[in-house]
């Protein structure tokens, strides 16, 4: 302890955490400063590609899913563990294609605030993950719209709405 100090809890995750933070907060994604929606949609698209590819890798040894709910449960459990080392805390559904996933301590928000401070920054930190969920579902053949909201950091909710072919 004299010269060592504490170990990083998850040293391999820190660069990803910092990279995500920079992606969100610095201007490297280009786009106009005065158009936050452009930033959000870019982050979402990067997330979509990430999720689309990631699910392929994660499912290589896994059996087929029974139904849609089974798929969403997989997202809440194994997929979330692979991404954020924890499971989704709460899953709710109306059984008509709407799912609400609640994470009480979302990783990208947990270092930022535990109150309403910086709340206006919330959506930027969730866009990438919305994209990941949408991408993962898309590669499983489920078209969806994913939006996220946060009322008090670090907890947040992801709303998944399945698009039915009409």
């Amino acid at each position: 302890m004299a010269s060592g100090g504490v170990q990083l809890s998850n040293p391999e995750e820190l660069p990803i955490e910092l990279l995500h933070g920079e992606m969100v907060c610095s201007g490297i994604l280009g786009g106009k400063e005065d158009d936050p929606n452009e930033l959000l949609s870019k982050l979402e698209f990067i997330g979509f590609s990430t999720g689309y590819r990631l699910i392929e890798r994660l499912l290589k040894d896994s059996p087929r899913f029974k139904d849609e709910l089974d798929t969403v449960k997989f997202i809440c459990k194994d997929f979330w563990v692979a991404l954020y080392k924890k499971q989704i805390d709460n899953l709710r559904t109306n059984h008509q294609g709407t799912y609400v996933l609640q994470d009480n301590s979302f990783k990208f928000l947990s270092k930022i605030s535990a109150t309403k401070q910086y709340l206006e920054n919330g959506p930027k930190f969730l866009a990438y993950t919305c994209g990941i969920i949408r991408g993962a579902l898309a590669n499983l053949g489920i078209a969806s719209v994913v939006i996220a909201e946060t009322a008090t950091m670090p907890s947040c909710r992801f709303h998944i709405t399945i698009q039915r072919p009409s």
């Binding site: 910092l18 933070g21 920079e22 907060c25 930022i112 605030s113 109150t115």
Partner: peptide, 16 residues
């Protein structure tokens, strides 16, 4: 350091 909202070198006003 891990809070990307805080600018480096700015006064720290994070309530957390």
């Amino acid at each position: 350091v891990k809070n990307p909202v805080l600018a480096i070198g700015a006064y720290i006003d994070s309530e957390l």
